[in-house]
Design a protein around this nucleic acid. Structure first.
Lengths: 152, 152
DNA sequence: AATTAATCCGACTCCACTGCTAGGGTTTCC
DNA sequence: GGAAACCCTAGCAGTGGAGTCGGATTAATT
């Protein structure tokens, strides 16, 4: 069970945006340099974030990206969902909406997955953790790290 | 974010074992048939479970597998950990033990990952959900499903 | 107007890993 | 001794993730 690197990059990107002033846009190039990430790949990442309405962009020279909302109004579930597409512990979760999902491994006459109960709880746990963390928190954490000297 | 099919199979396998009497072993073949899973792959799955001490085996004709402990003493974290190896939202979690993990994307002088705070919470949420669910619960759920007619 | 710096967009490659199969060996019951 | 099960190792094919590349568009600067 692991999140993709794309998600990791996206979270870092958002934090970096949160650390900059919201008035003037930040270029991707700067973020790539600061975090040591490949610029060309970051473009794909930020595209997802933009599609989800989490960042806005200004094109042309001196362009870049800004947070679409203040950092304390951005839950990390928004961010992760935008990048990961879905947060489901099992792929049979993805298909139909809430109930009555027919797993491929249902045995016989469509009685619900017995494993489903477990995956529901796991998904709930993840979503709760994500939703309970705001971007602002991570930004603040990051800034505190930067301030303090690097461990004893 | 998704668990592997191996884990899904393993959980089903454990449930199936839980549904059978613990005195006589259940053959893998029977489980494969009941769940519609490939027998040859199940062998790998059950090997992991055995290695983790969750099931015991008896070889030879009329052999098979049994739960090593009563179902209500088996947390699903045990099962998932045995199959998944680790439950970490990010691969940099896997390496070093608890603290002082040096992520590959640490920027400069080893200040801790700012994303780490987030992943810690997620991991906590998952582990809590898994640990809070016992195999016995799932077995019971499964048996209730089998009893009731399949939806209206 | 030309240049430059940035966002945008799609296609394409590479590679690791997952899911699965195959084949054989070993143990035990009838 | 044969059948039925567990056991172990190797290997393969498909998928998807991570990353690259080339080019198009937009906008500020000079």
């Amino acid at each position: 069970m692991i999140f993709s690197a794309k998600t990791e990059y996206g979270v870092r990107l958002m934090i970096e945006l949160g650390r900059h002033h919201a008035d003037e846009p930040t270029a991707l190039k700067a973020i790539a340099a600061a975090e040591g990430l490949p610029l060309s790949y970051l473009e794909h990442v930020v595209a997802d974030l933009k599609r989800a309405g989490l960042v806005t962009s200004t094109r042309g020279a001196h362009g870049g990206y800004r947070l679409a909302r203040p950092a304390d109004e951005i839950g990390m579930d928004d961010v992760v969902l935008a990048l990961e597409g879905t947060v489901a512990p099992m792929d049979c979760f993805v298909t139909l909406p809430p109930e009555r999902v027919s797993c491929s491994h249902e045995g016989d006459a469509g009685r619900a997955c017995s494993t489903r109960l477990l995956w529901m709880r796991v998904q709930g746990g993840v979503l709760k953790a994500l939703h309970g963390t705001t971007l602002a928190e991570l930004v603040e954490f990051s800034e505190r790290q930067a301030a303090e000297p690097a461990v004893a």
